[in-house]
Design a protein around this nucleic acid. Structure first.
Lengths: 335, 335
DNA sequence: AAAACAAACTAAATTGATTTAGTAAATTCT
DNA sequence: AGAATTTACTAAATCAATTTAGTTTGTTTT
């Protein structure tokens, strides 16, 4: 590997001069500058990121943490869209992403991983609200952006979908179709999205003067199996709802399976609305009506936010709430 | 941030001693060792990876490159499973992953990215066979593992599914159901999987004494739309096949859409077999019969291979061919 | 008791960059 | 012409670690 020394020798100048040329200092003559640039080009020289990072304390590295409650980690369809958006924006700004899942939890804390790798900032998704290790990271003032967790601090901000309004859209759509008996299947109760979606469900039900029965609010998990089990519970009910707002598309998939197994049909027997709009939703049969989260946009914005936090030591970065969009497909029908 | 100097001062020893304690040198007394370890523990000290990497020329970083032909990058369902397997194994060995997609292509080569970040090894997926920048990486002898590209070199190896036998399984399944007129929709012809799957299709057709018509071998792309367009072509044929071997699950999804739009049914009018077994396949309606690639296993093995290449300067690492499994669901039926 | 050896430590060089402070030469000012 | 200033460079310190080559002790050996 070629180093800055080699370039300096080849160009017949000092190491300092080469460094200054690369970093745009203005006390270098045009002739020298051109000569050095030529040598750099010819030899295809690139500085060593470790040395740079060590000296400048800047790594152009963003740490990506994700956790989900089913251990599916990076596989989760919701995360994928976000990562894709992140990637686009970070790359544009010369940052690379380092992938930290949360399997090493007991060995390292978030902060330790960040410090060890010297990341300039961190993006965290799917973290539970009560994670004790989050405080440590916040205290260290590592620029951090949370996705789906409304955690603000001196050098941290967050981005989240408007889950409450999204849930209201889902319920409103069902009521507009004439449904009155509307159940909901929740995700993990510990997460912010679940709490907000539930709040939205309740708020809209109230606004429409509809009855919220306890037995129509089912605790579940953000997974196909979670939806399947929850729907079985619903099917056992004496007084069944005519529509179900599933708080995640995977839940909806599971619910639809349970309905099919019971010999019933969507949307004939139950109208189903999901949340997320993961890729598969459009290809389900019937195609799933769902509340779309703008995942790529969230990724792009999260990248913007973390870059801003990195660059502006002082300023606070305001949290962003991303709106959702109801996508009507074939899993809902007029009652 | 605490450095090794701080620890040395607190422990009343030299920097060298602290370093030796951490790296298991045997010329340190028991008492000193215990004392240093205690200070490290108390202060929660972790060495700086950049400094370590700079000095030792070892980063415990593996670069992850991926590209697909639809620009879906990390979103592609096939990659996801692999990344998940990779992650598990690499973490176990204290490696972190750095995510390089291929959007920066014109700016940097693979080699440049690797050198810049000082990665110990690289894992590359979805690369086209004729990528000119691959040679450069190989020449530099960066330990590399290719996924889905049979590229072997001094410090490079590969892992790939047994695509040919997988394709034969698909065709054999269809013939066992009595199908004789079997078409296939290809993915991008430039990729190794496409070439092997096509070879498998032809080999099995021959073995069964079935006619391979040119018009039943459709060029397509590994995407829903690719499958959709290709199926439309098939539907225009005078003499239609009764079964279609789609060389990717996404192709199958598109094909099934085209069939549905034409007012026809799967498996009644066409039996469909896919390839990959991505997550959605089981939830399609009808659930897709497909050839499953063991994605997580491929990820785990790829990680093992790259670690072996990193550790053993000398030895060659043999390529691995991973077998596939036919998963029969509801998109195929007896003729 | 002197010589040889082993045990337990440390000083200093090194890795590849950046940056501060300083210097020599060229230019401008009076 | 001499002083002041500007221009264009470089030497050396620095970042946080590892590692080589010593250096002190203390212990054996003869």
């Amino acid at each position: 590997m070629l180093t800055i020394k080699d370039i300096a020798r080849k160009a017949g100048v000092s190491v300092a001069t080469v460094s200054k040329v690369m970093n745009g200092y203005d006390d270098i003559g045009e002739v020298t500058k051109a000569k050095v640039l030529k040598i750099i080009e010819e030899n295809n020289y690139r500085p060593n990121a470790n040395a740079q990072s060590l000296r400048t304390n800047k790594s152009f590295l963003v740490g990506l943490f994700f956790k989900d409650h089913q251990d599916s980690g990076v596989k989760h369809p919701f995360f994928r869209g976000i990562i894709s958006g992140l990637e686009e924006k970070l790359l544009e700004n010369n940052y690379d992403m380092i992938l930290f899942s949360a399997n090493w939890e007991d060995q390292f804390s978030y902060l330790e991983k960040c410090q060890f790798r010297n990341v300039d900032g961190a993006i965290l998704m799917g973290m539970p609200k009560d994670d004790p290790k989050l405080a440590e990271l916040l205290n260290a003032k590592i620029p951090s952006v949370f996705i789906d967790l409304d955690m603000s601090a001196e050098r941290a901000s967050y981005i989240i979908s408007d889950n409450e309004e999204g849930a209201r859209k889902a319920v409103r759509h069902l009521t507009e179709l004439g449904h009155q008996k509307i159940a909901t299947i929740e995700g993990e109760e510990i997460t912010v999205p679940t709490q907000k979606r539930l709040a939205g469900y309740k708020a809209e039900m109230k606004a429409q003067n509809l009855e919220i029965r306890d037995e129509w609010v089912i605790q579940g998990r953000f997974s196909v199996d979670g939806g399947y089990q929850a729907m079985k519970e619903i099917l056992r009910l004496e007084d069944k709802p005519t529509a179900i707002f599933c708080q995640g598309d995977e839940i909806a998939v599971g619910a639809m399976q349970a309905i099919k197994e019971a010999g019933l049909k969507v949307p004939d027997d139950f109208s189903i609305v999901g949340f997320d709009d993961i890729e598969i939703s459009q290809y389900l049969n019937p195609a799933l009506t769902t509340v779309c989260q703008k995942k790529e946009e969230m990724g792009i914005e999260a990248a913007n936010m973390v870059i801003e936090l990195i660059n502006n030591q002082e300023e606070k970065v305001e949290p962003e709430i991303i709106d959702t969009e109801l996508i009507v497909r074939n899993s809902t029908r007029k009652l």
